[in-house]
């Protein structure tokens, strides 16, 4: 059940992230064509583009954490022995997770404030709070992901950099999780099921 949930969540994140980028391109290109060929400017292009950037940035927090793609300065971490590495990971994943949950809380408070004050986007007049809700959601997914990293490191002997990436394993290209994975998820894992 847990696994099914994780796979479904990944799939959901992947679809949002991927199609947001495609939509960005479509809107910008459409705006150029409309203005240059039909002399009609899309006044909403800017705000749609900005909204999509917000969506990609924050909805990507959890997914990037899962793929161990967040940027860090690993100089000292790379030098220390494996048993200390594990301790590093405990501290990093727990503190990061707690920080992100706190940011989730602040984010939801802010969203509520914006909803009360009723700000809208300039051209399409979409309520701003709808768009920025992705910010606390993004931090929430990030917080969950780092909590999972913490837990999996307690349960397993290997050093998990993220819930999906073990230290020393070659990195894999980011790709859509296959729909099959959802059904056969047990076989596809490295045999260390949660």
């Amino acid at each position: 059940m847990n696994k099914l949930f994780n796979k479904t969540l990944s799939k959901f994140e992947e679809i949002i992230l991927s199609y947001s980028v495609i939509l960005m391109a479509v809107v910008l290109i459409g705006s150029v064509i409309s203005r240059s060929l039909f002399n009609r400017s899309w006044t909403f292009a800017e705000e749609v583009g900005q909204s999509l950037v917000i969506i990609v940035t924050f909805m990507g927090i959890g997914y990037a954490a899962k793929k161990a793609k967040h940027i860090s300065m690993s100089a000292i971490f790379d030098l220390v022995k494996d048993k200390y590495k594990k301790m590093f990971i405990y501290v990093i994943s727990s503190v990061t997770s707690i920080s992100m949950f706190y940011l989730t809380y602040l984010g939801f408070q802010y969203v509520q404030k914006v909803q009360q004050l009723g700000r809208v986007t300039p051209a399409l007049r979409i309520p701003m709070y709808l768009i920025i809700t992705v910010v606390p959601i993004g931090f929430l997914l990030g917080g969950i992901e780092y909590a999972r990293t913490f837990i999996i490191n307690i349960k397993e002997k290997e050093i998990y950099l993220s819930s999906e990436k073990i230290l020393g394993q070659d990195h894999e290209e980011i790709s859509f999780s296959e729909p099959d994975d959802i059904e056969h998820s047990h076989e596809n894992e490295t045999g260390k099921g949660v």
Partner: peptide, 28 residues
């Protein structure tokens, strides 16, 4: 007519120039 006028993206400013037949174009 069709004049590409830079405006802020606010719909009222856009409408003010559309009233003259312009093509209001929001640019940062």
């Amino acid at each position: 007519k069709g004049f590409k006028m830079r405006t802020m993206p606010s719909p009222m400013i856009v409408a003010a120039y559309e009233a003259y037949g312009a093509n209001p174009t929001p640019v940062p």
